[in-house]
Design a binder for these strands. Sequence first.
DNA 1: TAGGAAGTTGACCGATTGTTCAAGCTTGAA
DNA 2: TTCAAGCTTGAACAATCGGTCAACTTCCTA
Lengths: 228, 228
Amino acid sequence: MAHGDVRSLPARRAANGKGRPANGRAAVRERNEAKILKAAEAVFARKGFSGASTAEIARKAKVPKPNLHYYFRTKRLLYAAVLERILEIWLDALDEIRPEAEPADALARYVARKLESSRTLPEPSRLWAMELIGGARHVQPFLKGRLRRLVQQKSEVIRGWIAAGKIDEIDPAHLLFGLWALTQTYADFAAQIAAVLGKDRLDDAVFAAATRTATQLVLRGVAVRSGR
Amino acid sequence: MAHGDVRSLPARRAANGKGRPANGRAAVRERNEAKILKAAEAVFARKGFSGASTAEIARKAKVPKPNLHYYFRTKRLLYAAVLERILEIWLDALDEIRPEAEPADALARYVARKLESSRTLPEPSRLWAMELIGGARHVQPFLKGRLRRLVQQKSEVIRGWIAAGKIDEIDPAHLLFGLWALTQTYADFAAQIAAVLGKDRLDDAVFAAATRTATQLVLRGVAVRSGR
DNA sequence: TAGGAAGTTGACCGATTGTTCAAGCTTGAA
DNA sequence: TTCAAGCTTGAACAATCGGTCAACTTCCTA
């Protein structure tokens, strides 16, 4: 990642393991960091890094501004911490793409999971999109490293499916780009989709139709031969 | 649109019709406005509305900062002027979707045109994406009005294709959302795609593969029975 | 229970934000 | 040739920017 370790200001006794209720120094720290991270995520997602102001984040998190700098030394480190949290969410669904899985199941489940996280966690997706549109300066190492290797690895799985005659010929990487696009659009461009559909927000019915449509495009698009 | 008429500061003798070479007051104005709009487009596309600074736009356009305010009274009006230019580009390709067209041709041509503009004009697409992610505050009237009507109208065309048995059952609006997503991702998220593919920029080969993959997903996805 | 680290916060820093102003320059119409 | 309208621009505006500081309170530990 393109940032120093945030967890080094004071020593971090960390984890707390047990779901201890709410006491002790560590608990205070954990609670405040969470409050700030959540507020930061929302503001960065709407305005991008340079558009977001620490004052607005502090206001939304209901802490005085110097408190932000106490827990995260700079705006940039706060941004890095928010991005780091998002990476895992972003990658999570990809483990549906496994060699031994049936392509129809795997792809349908992947689409469903990605759409589900567009529904329940739209802000991380939007922040990620903002970062990429802005040139991905803060996540370049991740993209060129871990994500690139992961895509190569999953592409190998898809090529395996093709070789086994389970799906039609298709460019594996571009299939993945398509899957990302088809699913994240419902988080990133929710405002457009809602307005066009004449709704205030994207409700369950919209996501049901989205899942049906995206799944159909993908499964028929790669001509999955179901079964065995 | 969500802005006043920019063209009302002094009287605008406008248009110039003929491709007159480069003289006269109107020509100076036209040239400077174009310079500023181009620079503004690039900066807004990278930073969003609130993240962009008029100083950076002025620097990039190579004009003193007060000159910006002479031609576009405020930052917001400049932003509105940039957005307005983009709307037409955005809608243009949609006229491929016509009742009398063969679905296979129409959809393939639509995908190709959209990908072509992702390749040649990525910045307008990115600016549009930034605006939508940020909540679409400046383009809400357009989305709920003109775009909504256009989508309803094109959905009717697609429903016609379905009724005529030319393509399979599918939700027309979500098919359009999918088409937008599949094509604009190559402009909006170019940084991610390039990094993952190990390239510096998206070259012609990438766009060729993108066109093939997206077209395949769409055409097979809706099971076009090629006509005649 | 005393001491000190951890956490909180109002006031303030220089830099940058969008915007205004007034003075000067350029140019086309009379 | 005149001169007002159009255009240019350095200087400066209040407001906000990210960040610092020192004084204060809270609470764990020895």
